[in-house]
Amino acid sequence: MSEVRNILLVGVGGQGTILASKILTSGLMKAGYDVKMSEIHGMSQRGGSVSTQVRYGDKVYSPIVGKGSADVIVAFEEMEALRWLDHLKIGGTMVINDYQIQPVPVNLGAAEYPEGIIEHLKGICDVHAFKAADIATDLGNPKAMNIVLLGALVKSMGGLDDIDWDAEIEANVKPKFVELNKKAFHAGYDL
């Protein structure tokens, strides 16, 4: 029986983690894996931290990724990477979008956004950081940032190349955004 693999997508409400995880889980299911995915909605939609947990393997029980067990964490925002560090498996990879969103307390001057998070994390674990927003903007729409990150995630996980990701993108995004998102996926994958 193959071991269960764990992925965490973390970010800030409205960054598109949900679409990315939808494409991911649908691809994994078609590849024959048992898949579970968990996300928390609600208050968090209003600019709070959000997380989506994806687990796959021959047989998955809990839908939740435990501490120290994520093979890959994809952080759509820098500080969220730091927040979820304790969930990364020893030896796992942190894929980080080099992008900051100021939380309200920082805006109000009540707290300071920690500086140099990416460099700091590089001293702790394996980090793959890049500016997904810039890549998506170059492709024509900053919103495709989530799919750039998905491409990078699939590459980091390894062993998922046989899945027809283009078909999954076609099935899950509006027709007029299909080409953009396919390009975004491959841009992220090829980084």
Binding site: V12, G13, M43, S44, Q45, R46, G47, G48, S49, K67, G68, M79, L82, R83, L85, D86, H87, L88, I90, P103, V104, P105, V106, A111, E112, Y113, P114, I117, H120, L121, I124, C125
Partner: peptide
């Protein structure tokens, strides 16, 4: 787990 001594800022909705 990995640990860091840098504190994160809460992100209240």
């Amino acid at each position: 787990t990995y640990k860091s001594d840098v504190a994160t800022v809460v992100r209240p909705p």
